[in-house]
Amino acid sequence: MLELDGLEIVQGAFRLTADTVLQAGQITALMGASGSGKSTLLAAIAGFLDPVRGSIRIAGTDITGLAPGDRPLSMLFQDNNLFPHLTVAQNVGLGLRPDLRLSPAQKDAQAAVLARVGLEGLEARRPRDLSGGQQSRAALARALLRGRPWLLLDEPFSALGPALRRDMLTLLRETARAEGLSVLMVTHHPEDARAVADATCLIADGALIPPASTEALFAEPTPALRAYLGE
């Protein structure tokens, strides 16, 4: 469970409150208009932004004061998910040890996860020699290798074309199920949420509206969702 307990985030004149619980073991989509604070909320959960009030708990443990790297989560950013000077294998290996001194067993795990996302044979490439889809796969591979229970996605696939994005979401859903990962993903495409998210929540008017089943929500849109969809 990811609990946002009386959370309040302030950035200049911007203010966002969140007081809700996200279920573990499923994919939750986070939607909202541009500038509504989706990325800001993710940044707070990931530890890049200190909330002015409230706390964040994962599996009952308060993580509010932890350094980003110590939190039980991995994050895929909108861009710059890979270091351009490191190879694919090194970028992925950082998920196990930042100093890249991998044991034989860890190297095996590294090779396995690269195969899992379809990047075998590309280990020695640099990010600039990969397509956008392959770069996304490498970033996902690292998150899988880190094995943290939660995965936060800040629209990492938004630069991909529709077909590639669908492929990535499918891969995400399959791997998340197989590994028992809990996922919180920002998206502004309703069809993405409907395709992969078990639950969907919205940010409207500076507050996070608690999640509801995606199916039910789109079957009978709330006023906030209708406003977002422009209906």
């Binding site: 940044a43 990931a46 530890g47 890049f48 350094a67 980003p68 790297g69 110590d70 991995s74 994050m75 950013f77 710059n80 998910n81 270091f83 000077h85 490191l86 950082l94 998920g95 930042p98 100093d99 890249l100 690292r142 880190r146």
Partner: peptide
Amino acid sequence: YGRLSASLGLTGWVWLRRVGLPR
């Protein structure tokens, strides 16, 4: 790459060697 480094726990000398000096 600040957030990426932080989220991977790349700090101190390891950061310098793997990220700072190369970049």
